[in-house]
Design a protein around this nucleic acid. Sequence first.
DNA 1: AATGAATGAGACTTCATTCAT
DNA 2: TATGAATGAAGTCTCATTCAT
Lengths: 215, 215, 215, 215
Amino acid sequence: MAYRETEKMRLRKAEIRQRILSCALGRVAEGGFRHAQINQVAEKAEVATGTVYRHFESKAELFAEVFRLATEREVSKVGEALNGDGPVPQRLERALRQFAVRAMHGPVLAWSLIAEPVDPAVEGERLAYRHAYAELFERAIREGIGEGSLPSQDARLSATCLVGAVAESLVGPLAPTQQTTQQDTTSPTLSEAQITDLVEPIITFCLQGVTGQRR
Amino acid sequence: MAYRETEKMRLRKAEIRQRILSCALGRVAEGGFRHAQINQVAEKAEVATGTVYRHFESKAELFAEVFRLATEREVSKVGEALNGDGPVPQRLERALRQFAVRAMHGPVLAWSLIAEPVDPAVEGERLAYRHAYAELFERAIREGIGEGSLPSQDARLSATCLVGAVAESLVGPLAPTQQTTQQDTTSPTLSEAQITDLVEPIITFCLQGVTGQRR
Amino acid sequence: MAYRETEKMRLRKAEIRQRILSCALGRVAEGGFRHAQINQVAEKAEVATGTVYRHFESKAELFAEVFRLATEREVSKVGEALNGDGPVPQRLERALRQFAVRAMHGPVLAWSLIAEPVDPAVEGERLAYRHAYAELFERAIREGIGEGSLPSQDARLSATCLVGAVAESLVGPLAPTQQTTQQDTTSPTLSEAQITDLVEPIITFCLQGVTGQRR
Amino acid sequence: MAYRETEKMRLRKAEIRQRILSCALGRVAEGGFRHAQINQVAEKAEVATGTVYRHFESKAELFAEVFRLATEREVSKVGEALNGDGPVPQRLERALRQFAVRAMHGPVLAWSLIAEPVDPAVEGERLAYRHAYAELFERAIREGIGEGSLPSQDARLSATCLVGAVAESLVGPLAPTQQTTQQDTTSPTLSEAQITDLVEPIITFCLQGVTGQRR
DNA sequence: AATGAATGAGACTTCATTCAT
DNA sequence: TATGAATGAAGTCTCATTCAT
């Protein structure tokens, strides 16, 4: 008989691709890019090594995709918050909270996305990611300066400071959740209340940084 | 006689140890921990590979020590600035400038110290480093709150934000000096004027963040 | 009804087999056996990988067949020339020219057929191919010795020398057309005039070799 | 104690390098470049895989060296024969005999050197090897034309024919010693008498080819 | 009977660490 | 004690072949 059920198989293939991606993401979330090896990803996804290479050209390609996958939604959420209605400081606050709360839910992953050095190919994605963040914040800050709700300042550097302050506070080794080594594969999950307690002071700092006014 | 011989040898041994350490530091400054291999360090230090292992238990041990070496002075400089005379905001400004300017002069090293993921053993040192920074800033902020020069705030988180904002701005992939991949082993050297242009807005942001007042 | 259906399918099957064979030959002609992978052959033939294995037991089987396909016609042309009318030296000349000119038109293929090492199974075919050539030439030389148009000689070795001289001149790395690496997949096509300039001296050498007389 | 016995160790290192080279050559002689894998070479040489890489930058480098090793002497012997005293035809005869007899003693190796396709890096060496041969013969033929002992001819093509005729006769699949597959790892060793019987007719053919006179 | 995704052995290469000299 | 060659586990990637659909 000719060839049937292409649809089913296409689904299966897509599913395996997804499984590989998500297992790769899982490995990154557990131990960072550093500890995510093709073999282990394949094993976790219950496929053969070669299968990974059927779906992704190389390790770098795979993790670049992982990066995009993990990143896209984060950036778009922050973007939504920043592009919403209301005065800029209020929107900044929403966006920072969005950024911070999400990062708190997966600190190792967040850290990998933000700080871990990787293959040049993946690095490209990270750069894009940070750029995306920075540009979103930068644009908002410029807008705030324009509308008079923010004082004059170097919008780009302020945007960078925002990202840095949040990232460091939440996922850096200093962060309350990271009192231990990053190599730990288990990360504590915080309660919503704990998260709020951490996030609010950070937002205060950041908003004061851009507005120059006591919050 | 026997004693003086021993003494000489002890000096020589210490000297070799220093040379290994400083060459290892050199490699990190050039390309990060990632690209610092024992063989290359040994070669640069003009000793045999095995000699490195006579002075340091393992690669991790060596680089932990490297980390301490590189870090100690940075932290103590910032500490001096923070523990000096004058109102806290002024001291904070001095310290931040100290931190920022030094980082700008060796971005790859700074980035490695701040952000590059490494062996657990080395990570411990990084933790200590960031802790040291955070504690210095935290103490100063507390003092400022006490003396009334700073508003009430979560001193620890503010301190962390300070470190994060500076680090991100100066050595992150977004930083003006890092518009390219970290894999680059050559980093542009900035003129003093350029450095000032970068550092001032950052300091402004940070001070506003802790003081809640327009600078 | 049932019969005609079967017939149609048999034709279709034969056609697919042919397509696979000819695409495999194409790949060899482009880059040699070395660079002819089953996947690429299948893709070029617009069938699935598995289909190749329905028609041929293994890669080796396929390429053995390819070898036969590519070889048969060459040998039979040379055979016709050798078995024609006229004195042996004249027929040898015709045959050598036939051999040489054809090889010049597809140097990579010719080289693959003559010299590239391959799987044992394929090698068997190459052996048969060279044997066929050698036997044709050998028989002609024997005939020439018999009729007195050629001096006494070891007919087999002379035949081998003929093949070797032509093959090396035309497809060896020394050959004027092969001044570059075999890995090159594109080979220059020569004009008829150029081909003649190359072929004539070779024929002269070969005929002198068997006749022992100045041509 | 400081470092002693450098001399002994240098010898040992050189010896290992030699052992690797000679085992690699052995593998080529047994089954061609195709079947010479780094692991097997290392095993045969009784060293670890990594050791091979201490002595040679890459597989290609190793086999390029193997090629040079195997080739140098052959070419220089032929060169000596060609550059000696006496009329050109006589020198050609000496050189051809030299070439042929040596090849007969290691047919698989000879074939690998002459015909097997390999890594581009190794191919470079082969090219050089064939060039060397061709140039030697070409120069001699030109000289012969100059001194009147050889008729006018395309020296380059004649030289190529010489190499091809000898190579094919001795190491090609048609050659009496190669009635079986090249993949055979054992090759029959011929007696001196047998070798003479094979070599003489080849030389006759070749000399007749270049001189156009019955030998 | 055709499909083509999955398989997995096997090839090359790197580099932290050891150990005979 | 210093040396540095040797080690070998581990990692990435390829490709002939199989097999569920």
